[in-house]
Design a binder for these strands. Sequence first.
DNA 1: TAGGCCATCTGGTCCT
DNA 2: AGGACCAGATGGCCTA
Length: 143
Amino acid sequence: MKSRRPSCTDSGSESSEPDSKSPEKYETATRRRMAANARERKRMQGLNTAFDRLRKVVPQWGQDKKLSKYETLQMALSYIMALNRILTDTKRHNAPHRQWLELQFDSVQPENYPCLMRYDSPTGPAYIHSSLSYQFDGHQVHA
DNA sequence: TAGGCCATCTGGTCCT
DNA sequence: AGGACCAGATGGCCTA
């Protein structure tokens, strides 16, 4: 466990005004709050596990720095669209599959996405959508 | 030191 | 009633 708010020591709801309730009701409320906190923690851990799994299948090209959650989602989005485009183009061009796919996958390489490799970009994480951005329902997806 | 990212708590809302 | 989900608030850690 990382950081915890000092004022919130799993003691439950301090805002449940113990004075205005019987001790039994206060205890019940406290117990329920603690249980809810534990469930929420577990839920968020599940969410983080899912993010970790997503990070593993999304291209990182040897970046030592772990993608943030936001970056992971943006990258997954762009990656899916890129793969989708490859499939669409393969059908449209009716090229010999192997040759065409090799050509396409060769283009999905880090050197073709220089912006992705710049964490020190002055504009911050803008590198992701600048290189793999796409149109969705007529709206540009922004980071 | 400021800003980004994150974990956690909390109260509200919706659903079963 | 209780659980799941969500968003806001808060504070810790890390890096430039």
